[in-house]
Amino acid sequence: MGGASQLFKTDLEGLDRLIRKLRSGGYVVYGPVKQGRSWFFLEIDSVKQVDLNYVRTVLPPKKLLHPPREKLFEFKLDDGFEVSEKPTPSAVALFGVHPCDLKAIERQDEFFSQTPEDPYYLARRRNTLIIGLTCTRVDENCFCLSRGTGPEVSTGFDILITDVGNGYLLEPGSAKGLELLKSLGFQEAGDEYLEAKQKLIEELKKSFTKHMPSEGLAELAKSLLDHEVWKETAERCLSCGNCSLVCPTCYCFDVYDVLELNLRSGVRVRELDSCQLLEYAEVALGGNFRRNRFQRLRHWMLCKFGAAGGGLYSSCVGCGRCIVYCPASIDLTEVAGRLRGGG
């Protein structure tokens, strides 16, 4: 990482220039915007729309890389059929992505790069510039520290912004990011900026109250498939699928065909799916290998603990969204704690 030694600094106006520069370069820029009580990644044209002190958005930036619904291809049925693929996506810049979400994107990148590559995700990812943002605060549902996914990150971004109080430290994470910073004429930052960042990180580390260490968790959970915690927790679970919808590492999707009214052409679509829904594991003639709610809850948690199909790539980064948005107050860190012998 040749860029690591070169650090820049700027002020709020400079961040605004960065956003304007991206927009004039053809990027659609998304950043964390507060609406009501929550934050959302929305299209922005100025830093003024962004809340740089946000905690977490409702949906992770996944929605822009692995969208909730997307067309795989179009087809024509006329005489036999013809399939045509979709065009390439437009360039997107994600502004203000927190460390947990940066790590989640890295995991999704690796997941979708496994052979055979997923051309839709990777085409979009290649056209995406990522500007990370170090958190300024931690709430009672953040636990990236124990997952090793924050609050400090060294990869997963083109540029990383840190609010150091009297200005912003800008660290390039890629050649593209370095070039962008240079082109904006930002001044080099002195050591005091790095020291201030280090102090902020140390302060943040002290404020975590939730923990779910990764060490041995996957193996432990797999060895405790009959633990009572699964059934007990599932009694409250509504199988609504919120947890997987808001999870930045959940990648599962459904595929289906939609015919046009003329019945001669149509599209094949993929749509985010959730293993919490009953139909997810249904097979022909009414068979279902996860008919019971506890099996679905257990499968999802095993996945987040790194013990299901996606392994590390779909495991938890500690963003806390599933805890915040669970209508039944289910907390996977409590389940992990029970498995480890607490309670």
């Binding site: 979708f112 990648y251 595929v255 293993c275």
Partner: peptide
């Protein structure tokens, strides 16, 4: 290996 549906545990 992308849609997730066919998983049996790991």
């Amino acid at each position: 290996g992308k849609c997730g549906h066919c998983q049996i545990g790991g």
